[in-house]
Design a protein around this nucleic acid. Structure first.
Lengths: 148, 148
DNA sequence: AACGATTTAATCGTGCGCGATATAAATGCA
DNA sequence: TGCATTTATATCGCGCACGATTAAATCGTT
């Protein structure tokens, strides 16, 4: 009954899009960005900018390097992003006098104030997800350790 | 003992980066792309190009719209990507004679042949993940339904 | 003090994602 | 038939991600 698949029977299961963790992750990440977009538009932030602001709301000032460590991004991504946040008046950037290689990124009053508007976002997003709180936590922790 | 957090005690738990499903997803997706990159470089493909090829290896030819449905991308993303695949000789694009609005994307012999080289990728990636097969499947299915 | 190695950030080019818009073909319907 | 509407793809601009490179400051060793 069973038969060894000939070359023409490919793709094998392993290459089917449906079986790819990578595609599930890719699609979920794209959909998540779309879910945030309308809320972040109201704050004048993009999705990666929002993540950078989360880091700064926890601790400001921070060096570019420290931000990069927290977000797992390097300066070629962060520098232009931070310049846009600076242009929007949310942060200030200046060289560290103690080590001129470093650039210190600090929230402005406007940047700190934006946190108040952001506070409603997690709740709204949780509702949009329509998923038990515990399941969200489980998934989040699983993703944190994925490929790391 | 307990105290109501004052305004200065923010950010509240809800805004902490550690608690964000969106950031876990963002980071995992970035890391996944990095994990694939060396393998895909060998095939001359980017990560989204690889996903498009997976779709075509399952069924070619397909219209741009059908590819977009499968990948959840629209023509503004796909058209340039497909032009690059065409420039690389992996696909051909031509208008559907039965409906001149549609563009049909078909694998070339070279595009079909690339599948042989791609076949080793899922196994290599699974090893790199270092995660039980069942856990990969569970995570994948969970992600498929996330925010959809 | 000198000088090579390391660290830190910026710059540049390429390829996504996607909103907004454009264009052309097909369809609906009065 | 004629014309508005809908559908399918393409175009354009912006903001990431990231590899490769550059430039400057600091560190370590002698």
């Amino acid at each position: 009954m069973s038969q060894k698949p000939a070359s023409s029977d490919r793709p094998p299961e392993a290459l089917r899009l449906d079986n790819q963790l990578c595609f599930a992750l890719y699609g979920a990440a794209n959909r998540m960005t779309r879910l945030y977009r309308p809320m972040l538009d109201a704050l004048g932030l993009t999705y990666p900018q929002y993540l950078a602001m989360l880091v700064l709301w926890e601790a400001s000032p921070r060096t570019v390097g420290a931000l990069g460590d927290a977000l797992d991004l390097d300066s070629s991504t962060l520098t232009p992003l931070l310049k846009r946040l600076e242009a929007g008046g949310l942060v200030e950037r200046h060289r560290d006098p103690d080590d001129e290689r470093r650039v210190i990124v600090a929230l402005t009053d406007k940047g700190r104030a934006l946190r108040d508007q952001a506070e409603t976002i997690p709740e709204k997003l949780f509702c949009a997800l329509d998923m038990p709180l515990e399941a969200v936590g489980t998934l989040r922790e699983r993703l944190k350790t994925l490929a790391k």
